[in-house]
């Protein structure tokens, strides 16, 4: 077995993952590209397990299993964040996320004081103004 074949496959997959993370605008597609990168690392670990003699046997495969579990946890939390973003902004484009303003569009004090002003102003704090506008 020539170990260079799976190693080069893993390197190319990692490059594709980096490209996808930087290129895509949709947050779900960004998560898919992150999965590509994690799988490239897994392939490196499994190939190293069969080709490099280690002190503990099968440490590479154990690490690959751990990375798979970590990827499952990551995708769960990541999708929860993406769905919350969609609920707030009605869009999952990662370059339209404002990083400099507060996460809720209406601040707490304003919402409490102006609760009687209009129902539209306060429900904007829950749904986001973009949904309504």
């Amino acid at each position: 077995m020539r170990p260079v074949v799976p190693y080069v496959t893993a390197a190319l997959l990692f490059g594709l993952g980096v490209f996808g993370v930087l290129r895509r605008r949709n947050a779900v597609l960004v998560l898919m590209a992150v999965e590509l990168m994690l799988n490239a690392v897994n392939l490196i670990l499994v190939t190293a397990d069969t080709t490099v003699r280690a002190q503990l046997p099968h440490a590479g495969q154990v690490f690959a299993l751990f990375v798979i579990v970590l990827a499952a946890a990551e995708i769960g939390v990541g999708l929860a964040i993406v769905l919350q973003l969609y609920r707030l902004r009605a869009s999952v484009a990662v370059d339209e996320v404002p990083l400099t303003e507060a996460p809720t569009p209406v601040p707490a004090g304003v919402a409490g004081v102006a609760a009687d002003r209009s129902a539209a102003g306060t429900t904007g704090g829950v749904d986001g103004p973009e949904v309504r506008g």
């Binding site: 170990p3 190693y7 080069v8 390197a11 190319l12 990692f14 490209f19 930087l22 605008r25 597609l29």
Partner: peptide, 28 residues
């Protein structure tokens, strides 16, 4: 509208992928 215009992405992604591939080919 799924993509940004992506020359820097292609540069960084291709660079990292091909760089890693060259490293691994050189090692093995």
């Amino acid at each position: 509208d799924l993509d940004r215009p992506g020359w820097p992405a292609a540069l960084i992604g291709g660079g990292s992928g091909l760089g890693l591939a060259v490293l691994l080919v050189d090692a093995f």
